[in-house]
Each structure stands twice: as C-alpha cells, then as structure tokens.
Design a protein around this nucleic acid. Structure first.
Lengths: 111, 111
DNA sequence: TTGCGTTATATAAATAAAAGTATAATAGTA
DNA sequence: TACTATTATACTTTTATTTATATAACGCAA
C-alpha cells in the first residue's frame, strides 16, 4: 500500500492568511515579468483574483508587496518591494527545510 | 508584527486523502462512545457526512476502520478495527513530532 | 409485535469559493 | 491626440463544498 505524505504550510496574522505557496509563486512571476497581469495569466488565474489576493495580503501584513506603476510605457507594471523579497526568502528557506524534516520523519514512522 | 505558523498534514493514496486530523478525531470519539452517530453529533457534524467520510476512507485504504453492528440492543454501534488503531497511532506520533520540528524551525527562521 | 437507536443511503438545499466580465484611470509614446 | 498595456475595482456567474432532510433496514428487548 503506497501512502504518501502531504502537507500545507502557511503564515497567519490574527487568524488570517498572510503568506503561503500561492503568493510566493505569483510574486516570483511578478519579479520575472514585471507585471501582475502577466503573472496571473501564466498560472491561468484571473487578474482580478490575483489583484485581490495581493491587496488582501498587503492589508493584513501592513506593508506593500508590490511597487505599482499605472500607465506610461508598456502601460505600467509592478515590482517587488524589499519587504516582499525578505518574506519570500524566509518562507522559501523554511519550506525547504520543513520538507526535508517532514519527509524523513514520515519515513521513520510509516515505513 | 505577530505572525504565526500554520500547517496541515495528511496522508494520500493515489492522490486522494486517506487520513488526517478529521478522521483521527472522529475515530477517537467512536472509540469512546461506541457509536459513529454520537461521534458525529459531538462535533456538530451531520451523521451522513461522517458516514460518507469514513466510507470513502475505507474504500481508498482498502480496509475497514469500523466494525459495525446494525440493530440489536441500543440499536447497534461501531468499534474500531485493529488497522484503524494502528493508523491512528502512527499518525498521532507523526503529528506530534512534526509539530515540534516545524515550530522550532519556524522560530529559527522567522524570529 | 412494537419501539428504540443505530447503520446505510440518496437527494435537496444552502453556503462558500472560484472564475469570469466589465469598465475606469493612468501616463508614456508614436 | 490617439493608442497601449497596465493597475484598480465592482459585479455577476459558475462551480464546489458543506449542511440538512428523509427514509429504509436491522435486531434486540419489553
């Protein structure tokens, strides 16, 4: 019987999500493309949904994740803030180490 | 800014959930009360939902979690199978150790 | 034989989440 | 000035999930 460990990790503030895999992925794509719209498109998420997601996170966190530019050449765009980069980096390291830790624990107990 | 780590752990087989916190809790209550209906009632879950949940898990796992008795004194009831006990025990140990591991990791990286 | 509390099961209703649509505002540039 | 691709925002529609309702079968006990 091949069972597999699954898990989800995220960060909350006052009982509300403020960071997780979804935001991490979107922010990486914003970093690369320079546009929230393109980032959303890449993962087949509607722009409005992506926009609401980021807006909610920012509101809860109390700081901006994106530096926006509306209009202008190429219509504008978005870039990461320093605080966004810091959060991403910490979450990535945590996620990576957690993955190793959980999987070795799982093997120890279930195999 | 007080951020809090949150996580969810569960076991899958062929991409479908076969065990997690919910089932663990219900099975504990069945063990104590001798009845799936009472177990469901305790956590304000409809009996049909609890029944479907357990039935689906059993189907996916390929073995029974409950020994059922229909009719008879007190209408019948349900008891845990040995395999259910084993799964519960392993998952509990895993969960407990994972909790410690994740939280110390979280402190190390986020604090 | 009737009542009881359970398991077993299907179906409907309600709620929540996700996805989609529409439109305004913006500021460089051709 | 007209065009462009973006951010910003409000709604509507659709889908998925959860919850509720209803009913049958069962077997012991009074």
């Amino acid at each position: 019987m091949i069972l597999k460990l699954r898990y989800k990790l995220w960060i909350e503030k006052d009982g509300e999500k403020v960071f997780g895999d979804g935001p991490l992925d979107i922010l990486h794509r914003v970093e690369r493309t320079g546009s929230l719209r393109q980032a959303a498109e890449e993962i087949n998420m509607s722009y409005s949904q992506a926009w609401n997601l980021i807006k909610d996170l920012e509101k809860r966190l109390g700081f901006n994740l994106l530096k926006r530019k509306v209009g202008g050449e190429r219509g504008g765009g978005s870039q990461l803030t320093e605080q966004a980069r810091e959060m991403m980096m910490k979450f990535e390291i945590f996620h990576e180490e957690a993955d190793q830790s959980l999987n070795s624990l799982y093997k120890k107990i279930f195999k």
